[in-house]
Write a protein that binds this DNA or RNA. Structure first.
Lengths: 150, 150
DNA sequence: AAAGATGTAACAATACGAGTAACAACTAGA
DNA sequence: TCTAGTTGTTACTCGTATTGTTACATCTTT
């Protein structure tokens, strides 16, 4: 399985907008935090906007979250940015004349659906608020560690 | 997310070996059912062999399952063939000087781990025996449907 | 008007899965 | 023993998806 960072970067963007809501929220500034480029940020923000997770206004560097972070879950973000909703994928090119090839697709689809449901149930329990809280907690821990070092 | 068929094809191979254990089990025959090529089948069989899910003997087209299908789960097969064990992936290239960039990696790693655990728990409950049973059930249903049609 | 930002598209670079081919080593049967 | 068929393994190519890069029309603010 190849790996994309869409979900991680989307969470990053939302958390950035929430944490730095008083600073510049230009795609360039956000891209600097993601260590990526403004176009990627804007592309992801299109998906987040279509999912009604944030609002933007052309020309103004002022994206805003439309929902409370306590009301946004990892599942919402996942569905917003991942155009392929499934974590596991059935090989849809098997020999229909074979007992295995003719029946394994539907069988695996059902099994994968159970795995998907378990994963999504867990994703639905992880709120953006919790993630932001943990980011702050880790930040304070790092600052305390830096203090102790000096 | 890009998608591979390694897991599906590996399940296919194991089910094929179990169901057609009295027929030819050459990589060419299996590849015909997967509608793939013998090299792919052999590559996957290497991983399955290293995970002690089957035994092979060079030159003989007689792979054998080493465990009872009731004792092999989707998780076993998943871990055998997927070299990247994680379904979700953290962007490990973020700006450490930013509150978000400096703390989101560890935060997401923890969250993703919970999702991974939920998915793997479900995978561990799906046995190869169950999958094979369902393949047979669907086969009988198809045969009955074909009968009714004529 | 000018500067800076977004929205969007086109293209290149990159990475990875999968297909293909080739060949040494091994097995089984004539 | 010889031969055909198979596995184990490697190298290369191809197709596809993500990401990086660039460009530019459109919008907002000063």
């Amino acid at each position: 399985m190849r790996y994309s960072h869409k979900l991680s970067d989307a969470v990053h963007i939302l958390a950035y907008i929430e944490i730095y809501h008083d600073d510049s929220l230009s795609s360039t500034a956000i891209a600097a935090s993601v260590e990526s480029n403004p176009a990627l940020v804007r592309r992801l923000m299109v998906a987040l906007r279509q999912a009604h997770l944030l609002t933007t206004q052309q020309g103004t560097s002022q994206p805003r979250l439309t929902r409370s972070p306590s009301d946004v879950t990892l599942l919402d973000i996942y569905r917003a940015v991942e155009d392929e909703p499934n974590l596991l994928h059935v090989d849809d090119k098997t020999n229909p004349l074979c007992i295995v090839g003719g029946n394994i697709q539907a069988t695996l689809r059902e099994a994968y659906q159970e795995v998907q449901h378990a994963a999504e149930t867990q994703m639905a329990q992880i709120t953006l608020e919790r993630l932001i809280t943990q980011i702050w907690t880790r930040q304070r821990q790092r600052e305390a560690a830096d203090q102790a070092e000096n």
